[in-house]
Design a protein around this nucleic acid. Structure first.
Lengths: 356, 356
DNA sequence: CACTATACTGCACACGTGTGCACGGGCTTG
DNA sequence: CAAGCCCGTGCACACGTGTGCAGTATAGTG
């Protein structure tokens, strides 16, 4: 047999397959497959010869075919609200690190808080037969949730705290309610009595929990919440909404009520509030205290640095991914809620007219 | 034949296939396949019956099998430096939108500016037989680049401006050199003569271009660049580097040289510089002017708002993705360089001791 | 009525990989 | 020397889908 001088004469567009290697080596594709997997069934000489040949021919296994045969894709679908959302970004980073360490690829899609689109994305994941799904946006309700369980795809939610459904759905959350409580307690301790809330309309679940924590904490302190203290960003075209702009737009409407402090749904809203204050010539924290939520990088860089609630965003992502891997291995897993903590910086101070 | 009362008696874990439908309908899987594709070959009655049956049985086509058969995955691999990088985030958003509109899924991976890891990621993409690759991080050189072309995967680079290789590699870039020129020209026009540069070590290509623009512009103005005016963040553990921290750490070393203005590689570096100034009690822009690069959201929110070079980040992403789609359709495409523009805010002003 | 055209469906193979089973040959052993 | 055993390899099928081609039944036409 002449040593074939050029294996890919035709330079076909297709990458080389094990069949191609088999033909050149004069064996069956089964032998090649086993040889490349270092199977003991194949004689050491043949094994090495084939491995070298594969190397020389530039063989790369076809993961698509392997997925079809093996009934697993080593792929996880990931839905987030928006790339621009720094909370999501941080969580994705945690997810990505664990995924990469376990040789799992990530399919990323963005829902822009649109339940319909989120469901389309999940259908796509299902078609692609991902091994599992992580959702950091979950707006799904009723029929959609039912459809999701029907697909029997292992799913982990981040910051969802599924209201009632407990069966097949797992989640990892940060304690929204307690975070709000800590934030408001801090303001109360500083001496504030009239405390406002700036929320969002398109993240119903988490907004509701933080708002509940806000209300309950005030009530517990013997303060009746005034409707004038509360503003929620309109849901309208919730696509592509910019939280900073919303915060900036909402703050002025709050001032006539005489609030001396504002608790915001997240740091972007808080930054928007800061921007509005600068425009209006309101000094923070001297004339108005502002507390954010999330502890995004940005919170450290604005003036004044933001007092906020720190969420373990990276950790949330890591745990979510690890939890999904555990589910895939059949290990028992348990949904959990992580604690959050107050980070005191310089955007909150005692009210000007000391209430003491 | 008794009308099967329950199609999935066994409730097998596998999703239903066209074969399952065929069995129930009493036809061959070929007929089902054609019926679901609305083929004219199948009689309208059968077609409708099968489609209803598929619906009822909760059929979802297996994209893995379709990919294997059809030799295309409708998937694009995406490599970026870091999710935390706001530039990348914005570009990814543009990419994602175009991808979603064209029913293409995104496989996302993070390289942390490590060429070796970037190559591993690309190998993974190749194994998964993605239709194409977009890289917004490209640190690839020599052997790696050669291997990449060997794989014959259509590839588009963002902000790479491949130095020499022109063949199979496409790219879409923003004009780094001109951006630096605009930034420095602005400072010169304000009256500055001693202008510093804060750069990065782990993004060699773009840093070199911006630095070149900086040097040439100063030279053209008859100013000799002093080595003391320049600091480059160490490459060392380039993984997980934080630009803001680097900027914050580098600025003090620049001051003894007497510079009255600083041009920074990007906005994060500039923000770091701002933080350092705040610590040292240096007023910006009164005592020191700072100019950033990228025009990240953050640039608007810091104090003072950052004068910076605006890159069309979203547009870069959109174009890159569209370019890749064009390549896949066999259309002729051409690499291009987008213009950038100066955004004047409040971080740069004439030097204290008017040079006029 | 016979022949042909037409409409519809099934067979068989392909995509690339993995694996249970059978088979051939060489060696050992009684 | 014959029988049994083990090592190495190939056959054939599976995963789920798509499609060229052949085949069958019906309708249409002379």
């Amino acid at each position: 047999m002449t040593t074939a001088p050029d294996h890919n004469k035709i330079t076909s567009r297709r990458p080389v397959s094990i069949q191609d290697i088999a033909t050149v080596a004069g064996v069956s594709h089964s032998t090649v497959s086993r040889a490349l997997h270092n199977s003991e069934l194949i004689s050491p000489e043949v094994r090495q010869r084939i491995q070298q040949l594969a190397q020389a021919m530039g063989y790369t296994p076809n993961a698509v075919a392997q997925s079809l045969k093996g009934q697993r894709t080593d792929t996880v679908g990931l839905v987030i609200t928006s790339i621009a959302d720094p909370f999501a970004g941080r969580a994705v980073r945690g997810i990505e690190e664990v995924a990469q360490a376990n040789h799992v690829s990530l399919l990323l899609s963005v829902s822009h808080n649109d339940p319909e689109r989120e469901m389309e994305i999940i259908e796509t994941f299902h078609r692609r037969r991902v091994d599992g799904v992580i959702s950091a946006t979950a707006q799904l309700r009723g029929a959609y949730l039912q459809r999701l369980t029907q697909m029997k795809m292992p799913t982990v939610f981040i910051n969802q705290q599924a209201d009632s459904e407990a069966d097949r759905l797992h989640s990892v959350d940060a304690d929204d309610y307690d975070g709000a409580r800590q934030a408001v307690s801090h303001l109360l301790a500083l001496g504030h009595r009239k405390i406002g809330y700036l929320g969002v309309g398109n993240r119903a679940q988490s907004n509701r929990r933080r708002f509940a924590g806000y209300c309950d904490t005030l009530s517990a302190a013997g303060i009746a919440v005034d409707a004038q203290w509360v503003r929620i960003a309109p849901t309208m075209n919730n696509l592509r909404a910019d939280d900073v702009l919303d915060g900036q737009a909402m703050l002025p409407a709050l001032l006539p009520s005489g609030v001396t402090a504002v608790f915001c749904y997240n740091d972007q809203i808080a930054v928007g509030a800061l921007m509005a204050c600068r425009e209006l010539g309101i000094a923070v924290p001297e004339q108005l205290s502002v507390v954010g939520y999330d502890d995004v990088d940005l919170a450290r860089y604005v003036t004044p640095p933001l007092t906020t609630i720190h969420q373990p965003k990276l950790r949330l992502g890591e745990i979510a991914m690890q939890m999904l891997l555990d589910i895939l291995e059949g290990k028992p897993v348990q949904s959990l809620i992580l604690p959050v903590e107050l980070v005191v910086r310089q955007s909150a101070a005692p009210p000007r007219t000391g209430a003491m």
